[in-house]
């Protein structure tokens, strides 16, 4: 069952068209990885899906309902939550307060302060600390945990491992694997580490200059094809 679908989505930054006619869909419990070079439009696409970046044309459908016109905070209530690029925690509030805000304004369901803390045990000792005082890995954990607190049907994770130590990344993917294993929440993840992206996801989309260049089941896609799509080499091969 398809949870979230984007049809011919176009989003702009001023005169620059960052997302061009992108169509994609995720099913319940499915993990979709989006890879692509810097400037490929991944973060803008996420912003458009979450409702913080205006959509120029196209449709976003959540559970069969058109949510394109809904502002971000209402999309959270319907079941789209995003851990944005750069974490964007509330720096002068405690970890617990950061989580509570999303819990108080999102959907009700399995995820509460207790269950989220159990899923992210590394946050228990720092629950009372200001988000400002956390390490990068802890911040990312809070950002993901905060998004979970609103009990999303679709979880958007932007740049999970960017700027983190290998140990922190390993810890976060352990948390996420447990979430994936439950097969309840659809996850769309933007990941720079190609091995991670392929290993963690069910399907993979490679974006180039705002378009989807390659799409397929992660286990079926040859590495060379992904690499070519990533750097836009396929087109040049065909031309020559």
């Amino acid at each position: 069952m398809i949870v979230l679908e984007a049809r011919s989505l176009v989003a702009r930054h001023g005169l620059l068209t960052a997302v061009r006619e992108v169509s994609l869909a995720v099913e319940q419990g499915e993990v979709l990885a989006i890879v692509g070079a810097n400037g490929a439009g991944k973060t803008t696409l996420f912003g458009a899906l979450a409702g913080v970046h205006p959509v120029a044309s196209g449709v976003i459908v959540l559970d069969g309902e058109d949510v394109t016109a809904l502002p971000a905070h209402l999309r959270v209530g319907r079941g789209i939550a995003m851990a944005p690029e750069g974490r964007r925690l509330f720096p002068d509030m405690t970890v617990r307060e950061n989580l509570m805000i999303a819990g108080e304004h999102g959907r009700k369901g399995h995820w509460t302060l207790d269950t989220v803390m159990a899923a992210f045990p590394q946050l228990v000792p720092v629950a009372g600390s200001l988000a400002n005082h956390l390490s990068g890995g802890q911040r990312q954990a809070v950002a993901i945990a905060r998004a979970l607190m609103s009990n999303p049907k679709v979880l958007l994770l932007d740049e999970v491992s960017l700027g983190l130590s290998p140990v922190a990344i390993e810890g976060l993917y352990e948390n996420l694997s447990a979430l994936k294993a439950a097969r309840e929440t659809a996850i769309i993840v933007v990941e720079q580490d190609l091995d991670r992206a392929v290993g963690f996801s069910d399907r993979l989309v490679c974006m180039l200059e705002g378009r989807i260049q390659l799409e397929g089941r992660s286990c079926d896609l040859p590495r060379a094809a992904i690499a070519d799509a990533y750097f836009g080499l396929t087109a040049s091969f065909e031309e020559h």
């Binding site: 502002p71 971000a72 998004a147």
Partner: peptide, 13 residues
């Protein structure tokens, strides 16, 4: 502290 992050957490800023 961050109006956009608040919106992303479901807050009607």
């Amino acid at each position: 502290q961050d109006p956009e992050a608040a919106r992303l957490s479901g807050v009607d800023a």
